[in-house]
């Protein structure tokens, strides 16, 4: 009888834990989905309805219209911005991953003079905020002749993404048991083979986390393109959308919302696609655990 009581006690405990966690989850989902929802609703309204103060801002009362999407794609350089952003992001992610994986491997596994200090130093560079850096960087890229070209972003974004990604990868590589390298060493692997065939596959969740970070840095970066690029043909999505759709004190809210929604679609798709890999714990079973 005693057992039964304690069991039902556990049951009700669990029930309350579930209720509470679902309660919080629902609250957070509403909180975080509110901006995209508002963007979607506004982008589908006509200009008159957006300007109408008497209507309910949460719902579309006077019919759905795609005019903002249409004018965004046909009348502005949105597609150019999109293409520029894709080029910049792909290059930045590729450069970041190659450099930071190699750096992290050598810093976590090859013990050389000063390797510890170097690892800390890399992290410290990440702590310097970009708002401090863009003025000296402006001089440097001007001197390099890269001003007003999206190639400048391919050069400067890695200064933000490489230190952080290297740091993430050092953490993942360091968690790989030493015996695994030793086994590979005895099996006959050299450093490159060890990195490609053992370290990278085993640290895949870390690699994906780092990729997502590098992607976000270059996709959503605002300050550097704002400071370094001023002609429309070289703009990226973040700054381009804003500068073309805010003319003086006229805000094209419908177009802005449509642009923001379209610009945020690729990261959402990427996250959804990679999340499964990210969560899958590939390291389990390597050693006794």
């Amino acid at each position: 009888m005693k057992k039964l009581i304690s069991k039902s006690g556990l049951h009700s405990n669990r029930k309350w834990a579930l209720y509470t966690s679902y309660g919080f989850l629902i609250a957070f989902v509403i909180f975080f989905l509110f901006p995209p929802y508002f963007m979607l609703v506004t982008s589908l309204k006509s200009n008159t309805e957006i300007a109408e103060l008497a209507t309910n801002p949460w719902i579309i009362e006077h019919g759905v219209t795609f005019e903002h999407y249409w004018s965004l794609l046909s009348e502005t350089s949105f597609l150019t911005f999109f293409r520029n952003t894709v080029v910049v992001t792909l290059l930045v992610v590729a450069i970041t991953m190659v450099v930071s994986v190699l750096a992290a491997y050598s810093l976590s596994r090859l013990k050389f003079w000063g390797s510890g200090i170097l690892a800390t130093g890399i992290f410290l560079t990440y702590l310097v905020p970009e708002t401090l850096l863009f003025i000296p960087l402006f001089k440097i890229v001007g001197w390099l002749g890269l001003l007003n070209s999206y190639w400048v972003l391919v050069l400067v974004y890695p200064t933000l993404s490489i230190p952080f990604c290297t740091w993430i990868m050092i953490g993942y590589f360091s968690s790989i048991p030493k015996e695994l390298d030793e086994a590979a060493l005895i099996d006959g692997a050299n450093h490159i083979q060890m990195l490609l065939k053992v370290f990278i596959p085993v640290a895949m969740p870390g690699l994906i986390a780092a990729t997502i970070f590098a992607f976000t840095v270059s996709w959503a970066g605002f300050l550097y393109p704002l400071a370094f690029i001023y002609s429309e043909s070289e703009m990226v999505l973040t700054v381009g959308t804003v500068t073309t759709l805010i003319k003086g004190d006229v805000f094209h809210w419908g177009g802005l919302m449509a642009g923001a929604l379209l610009a945020s679609a690729p990261p959402v798709i990427l996250y959804a696609f990679l999340m499964d890999y990210y969560i899958a714990g590939l390291t389990s079973g390597a050693t006794k655990g």
């Binding site: 695994l180 086994a183 060493l185 006959g188 390291t283």
Partner: peptide, 28 residues
């Protein structure tokens, strides 16, 4: 180590977690 013609079995097994048993055994 790879040229000493030795093989080692570790306390923690040190199996490659992302490979199947066949791939683990054939890696070397």
């Amino acid at each position: 180590p790879k040229d000493r013609d030795i093989a080692m079995v570790f306390q923690s097994y040190a199996l490659y977690p992302h490979m199947t048993v066949y791939e683990n055994m054939s890696f070397g």
